[in-house]
Design a protein around this nucleic acid. Structure first.
Lengths: 238, 238
DNA sequence: GCGTTTTCTTGATCGAGATCAAAGTGTCAC
DNA sequence: GTGACACTTTGATCTCGATCAAGAAAACGC
């Protein structure tokens, strides 16, 4: 019954977000997604795929079903900065914009539910509650961007790396209780460096230092364990 | 006739923004501001006044009538970062938020038109066009924040200072044509440093260097002239 | 398995920007 | 005007993170 929501070869698990979020798929409710289902398409991308190019025409919106998506901006000479990370069930795309302000890239393997530009915009116009939820997501992104500006402008390399690990721990395990955290980093050292305005060498050194100080253990390259979250928080400078 | 819009001792020029923006006072149209007039209050602040404190209850919205307002975040040990600048006719305040995410301070002498929280939110609920305009402003702020993240994370001190001067030139004289620009800096060197994630000494040195290179002239401390805007742009790294 | 490639870590050195220190300039009260 | 104070500039030195340079460890193809 749910299978026909998406014109897709992927099983019904594409709606996993619905379960996790009590009927809400981020800004879009399950009902709204269902109403759009004639137009949506589930797509898979692997890590590194470019989903949309900076300054290119904006073609569609998409909700992140699984995985992590990075938003980047690049200077002419190739210097790059990650300006946002989107986790399930965020909506990708700026309402009513005709051009992408950022480049959108899969940071990990990613499942997206693409929604054509016109279809979503039509629904937003006739649905004030949806418009309000999109406003909320945008305000949250603005808050996150401003928090990150403090990190970029005023924190030391050690504080930046600790702040990043805390951010990931918070996003990938939002309902964890107690002081222990375990997670896989969705980003390579190079991506972390681009997020923090550092070089990969500095990121690597600071991770090693956090490990030496007993704040984290690096179980495998990408797999991190935090024995005591408060200890990590104490390294963040605020 | 227009005098009764604001319960205020300031002459009608408080609506100057209406003229400059063809009936729009930023997100709020002149008509909408008129409809709210029973609740609004025009207030003046001088440079340095704190208009709202970080993590304090959000009490009201306000449109910037004249002057420049800075949004700041501060770490526990006092390190500060400016995370946004608001110029006339921006609306201050995050829709439906109960707590300020940032501290709001007058960067120059400022005139504000304060609008009580409930009054504006009531109007937004019944006016989709207004909601859409607020969404546009928020998306613009998000774009600006992300642009600035690139500056903070990846540009050199010289590029940061040039980018700041370009930003101010653009905002304070949006309709200027040709290559020449003249403007007064609305921020002290200390504020510029907090905006750029630098120290005041570095800001001062880079300004002196831009002057020595003929990119700008520093007529008085705060008064800057740019003989050739394209030359300044070439210093911004992108 | 084994070699190739990519990613990550560690070490040595360098340099941009911070810090420390002092002098110069402007502004305001009186 | 004169003094007090705040802001800005300039100089000397130091330090944190960048850069340069190997290695080590995963990941991948076959």
């Amino acid at each position: 019954m749910r299978k026909d929501i998406h014109n897709s070869n992927i099983p019904v698990r594409c709606m996993s977000c619905e379960v996790r979020h009590k009927g809400m798929c981020g800004a879009l409710s399950a009902d709204e997604l269902l109403a759009l289902s004639a137009h949506t398409r589930l797509v898979n991308h692997e890590s590194g795929d470019e989903l949309a190019g900076e300054k290119m025409p904006a073609e569609s919106y998409a909700t992140v079903i699984r995985g992590v998506v990075k938003l980047t901006k690049t200077l002419e000479d190739g210097r790059q900065q990650i300006v946002g990370l989107q986790f399930a069930p965020d909506l990708l795309g700026r309402l009513n914009a005709n051009e992408n302000a950022v480049s959108v890239e899969a940071a990990s393997d990613v499942n997206l539910c693409r929604i054509p530009k016109a279809a979503l915009e039509r629904m937003v116009k006739s649905n004030p509650a949806l418009a309000e939820r999109l406003m909320s997501q945008t305000l949250r992104e603005l808050d996150e961007a401003r928090d990150w500006m403090v990190t970029l402008g005023r924190k030391t390399a050690a504080e930046k790396v600790a702040s990043f690990l805390l951010l990931i721990a918070t996003h990938l395990d939002p309902e964890a209780v107690g002081e222990k955290r375990k997670f896989d980093l969705p980003l390579s050292r190079a991506d972390i460096a681009d997020f923090l305005g550092l070089t990969i060498e500095t990121v690597s050194r600071q991770m090693s230092k956090l490990k030496a100080d007993g704040v984290i253990s690096i179980v495998a390259n990408r797999h991190i364990e935090v024995p005591k979250l408060s200890k990590l928080k104490a390294c963040c400078g605020s």
